[in-house]
């Protein structure tokens, strides 16, 4: 079996005082061994919720339906003990805002060692050796294990977070906005490091961000989310450079290429705002903001239709959607 992770028809509903809020509404996704899948979308589209669901980190009253299979095991049916073992060893996560994810009163080396000791039952001494080599792997001298988080810069803290995520050699690493809080130059350094480690260790990764231009650099495949659903997926380069879904097109336009005359003096944007997950528009949830919407869009909810080699898009304008509509008038 080559799939490290498989999501089948996953629905996630948050519990609030005013009723359920559907954050993820039917997502299928696979991550193959050694593959990097980029998950893109705006705030509220459900991308971080999916990350939380894979590691079962969501609030306890959250309803998760469907199956999430990690290394052949359904995460949603795991007992608490098994789940604790899987976190860090089966899948680990690099959170956004590394600045706040580290414990400020513990040496960073001890924090990394803790994960190793707890999960691999190795002795403190062995763990320490491993911490040193992990730090060197992420480009920090091993003596920095004696530092406290405040002694490190933002980029160095994010490197520590990466070392921690790799500590137990997990089969899947989820990076949730790993570089958004960093400066441009440091972002490039961290991205390059992640890409090198991924190649070297053959990591399977999910890379989550709203920045499509970062994803096209780091990912093999891209999945674009809007209002709790995947609206387009396919090879990263193709999705970014020739989007099939109008939403992907708009998202890509937010990261214009310098030198591209189409964007010079002409910022492209969408009207309106991303929808409130508690009040998703009918039909295609993107139709109120879509520049190409026509009369069917408010009533027919599009499936993910095949849209070229290895690509799928949930838009009624995709040729496959029109064929299907023609077959069943």
């Amino acid at each position: 079996m080559n799939d490290v992770l498989r999501l089948d028809d996953v629905h996630i509903t948050y519990h609030t005082s005013t009723g359920g809020v559907p954050a993820v509404r039917g997502v299928d996704m696979t991550v193959r061994k050694g593959e990097v899948v980029g998950l893109a979308g705006e705030s509220g589209c459900g991308k971080s919720t999916i990350a939380g669901a894979i590691l079962r980190l969501l609030p306890s009253k959250t309803k998760i339906e469907g199956t999430i299979t990690l290394d052949g095991e359904n995460v949603l049916e795991m007992k608490p003990g098994r789940l604790r073992a899987v976190r860090w060893t089966g899948a680990s996560i690099i959170f956004q805002g590394a600045m706040h994810a580290l414990n400020p009163v513990k040496r960073v080396g001890d924090q990394i060692a803790e994960a190793i000791v707890v999960h691999q039952q190795s002795a403190e001494k062995e763990a320490r050796v491993r911490v040193g080599s992990l730090l060197e792997q992420v480009g920090l001298p091993s003596r920095r294990m004696r530092d406290y988080p405040h002694e490190l810069s933002g980029g160095q803290k994010q490197r520590v977070m990466i070392a921690m995520a790799l500590a137990c050699s997990p089969s899947l690493v989820i990076a949730d906005e790993p570089t958004t809080a960093l400066d441009v130059m440091v972002q490039a350094q961290v991205l390059r490091l992640m890409k090198e480690l991924q190649r070297e260790l053959g990591l399977s990764m999910i890379f989550i961000t709203h920045d499509l231009s970062v994803l096209v650099e780091t990912s093999d495949r891209l999945a674009i989310m809007y209002a709790g659903k995947i609206v387009e997926e396919g090879p990263a380069d193709k999705v970014f450079h020739s989007p099939q879904h109008p939403y992907t097109e708009a998202l890509a336009a937010a990261f214009p290429e310098i030198g591209d005359d189409r964007f010079r003096g002409k910022p492209l944007g969408l009207g309106g705002d991303p929808p409130d997950p508690a009040d998703v528009p009918s039909g295609c949830s993107f139709h109120p903001r879509c520049p190409k919407a026509f009369e069917d869009c408010p009533t027919i909810e599009p499936d993910l239709y095949p849209a070229g080699e290895g690509r799928r898009a949930a838009c009624l304008l995709v040729p496959a959607a029109k064929e299907r509509a023609g077959a069943h008038p």
Binding site: V186, A188, S213
Partner: peptide
């Protein structure tokens, strides 16, 4: 300009060091 992501910058030299 080299570190603007989609410029393919990850394969180009990146300045080392912090701001």
């Amino acid at each position: 300009l080299d570190v603007v992501p989609e410029a393919g910058g990850l394969d180009r030299p990146i300045l080392t060091g912090e701001p």
